[in-house]
Nucleic acid binder design. Structure first.
Lengths: 256, 256
DNA sequence: AAACGGCGGTGTATATAATGAACCGGACAA
DNA sequence: TTGTCCGGTTCATTATATACACCGCCGTTT
């Protein structure tokens, strides 16, 4: 693998449960030699992508990320545009809403508005959504650039739950359904007891760049509830696409 | 230079004025061969640090940054803690307030609250503040870990304006003044017509991790105005440090 | 105390991965 | 047509990343 990519993969080892990691820990998790990992970390620290706790000597994501993210937001205000949409969506459906954008090989969560109900779906901050195992991923892939879609289909698909599609045929079916309906449904394909409804967000070229989704406890899903979610989600996704400067393809149809 | 660092330096070529850049442009600006730059960009795109516009083929900062920044914020809520403090500071002083954290070799702006006055200081999003040329940088360096301070003093100091300290002695003086006063003053050392007042933000080990600053048009600075700024900034900086889990060294004194 | 194991970090010979010059096809201008 | 600049590709050369062995340190166990 390319060295730069290997180094950047280290960043993905940090998550909600592991906000800081030691050198040996990072080496073990990444399967790379300690000495190499240390050099990579120092290189990344030089630009603020990671930083080291002076006391524990552990590493964490750096303040440079905040600066770069702000810079991106200034040019392409995504979070700012999505936040009110997500909040309205959560309020109107009573369920947790989230938005994600393609970041590398998967979707990265860039905004969440939680439901206020006592039982609700809760998402870890910065969660990565696999393209084949989530409603968001399916909705995105169904409307992504064809070459990208083909890449996803060609991947070896890891099973996450019992309902995760692991064969090319199964995934292809789900994608076809999403293309026909204009949105994707996923019952416990990523997280048990979670039912996801997702619609694609489009870029200026009319291909998907991300997804807008509502996640509900599976137990609360009924035909009526599903209908509410879909009819609320549709205008929200449209608004989000337009606000981000995207173009909705003329062929898109939302089928209840 | 290390390959990873060279690749990450490409990220710093994006700024407020240049939100997207072409391949040749990046190669020219970085002084690296096109082929190499392209490989680096592709590696960074694989983790979402950058992304390519499908139409213009230009590159911009990627959505992965948003995810990683959110992840960092979840573990170390910096922006969220600083925003209300900055807003209060801007309101109480009538001037633009900003916060920055060490990110690599310099301070990266992580929060801004603009003054509402007709004449005010405006900061580019994601601005990088050199340690030797800004009030924030001096305040930070004065209270940073001694070895880091020594590194800064050992650097070749580039002049930004006529007032920028460029000799080790001049910088050393400014640092000593800041240490004695508990804050730094900088009259047009970075941007002409801008007067900066900055206090350090401390980490858990009692050394500076960033700075909180108020930037005023030089023309508006008077003894009374300066006094207002300092007396408003002091409790704000203290609050910010504590809210971020930092420890204020017992030796710190604020001298009006 | 002594021995141990894990930690963060360093030095260096080896081998792998980064490099850049030359090149391609396409878009646009003169 | 010719020329120029663009994004992108190829491939021989070589500079750079790599991993092993090793260091000192610290806390726990024996």
């Amino acid at each position: 693998m390319r060295t730069v990519e290997k180094a950047l993969r280290l960043l993905d080892l940090f998550d909600d449960q592991h906000p800081d990691l030691g050198l040996s820990e990072l080496a073990r998790l990444s399967g790379v030699d300690k000495a190499t990992v240390l050099r990579m970390l120092n290189d990344m620290a030089a630009t603020g992508l990671v930083e080291q706790d002076t006391q524990t000597r552990h590493w964490r994501l750096g303040a440079g990320l905040l600066r770069l993210a702000r810079l991106r937001e200034a040019a392409f205000p995504v979070s700012r545009v999505l936040t009110p949409i997500l909040e309205h969506l959560a309020q109107a459906t009573g369920e947790t809403a989230h938005a994600s954008l393609l970041a590398g090989r998967d979707l990265g969560t860039v905004g969440v508005a939680e439901s206020t109900r006592p039982t609700r779906v809760s998402l870890d901050p910065g969660l990565v959504l696999p393209l084949h195992a989530t409603a968001s991923g399916i909705a995105f892939t169904a409307f992504a650039r064809p070459d990208l879609r083909e890449q996803v289909l060609a991947r070896t698909l890891s099973g996450v739950t019992h309902a995760t599609p692991t064969s090319r045929a199964a995934l292809s079916d789900l994608i076809a359904q999403a293309q026909a309906r204009g949105y994707a449904l996923a019952d416990q394909t990523f997280e048990s007891e979670v039912y996801g409804v997702a619609m694609p967000l489009f870029g200026p070229d009319g291909h998907a760049v991300g997804a807008l989704a509502v996640a509900s406890p599976s137990s609360r899903i009924s035909d009526a509830h599903l209908k509410t979610i879909v009819t609320t989600l549709a205008p929200a996704a449209k608004e989000a696409t337009l606000a981000m400067g995207g173009r909705i393809p003329a062929t898109l149809k939302i089928v209840l």
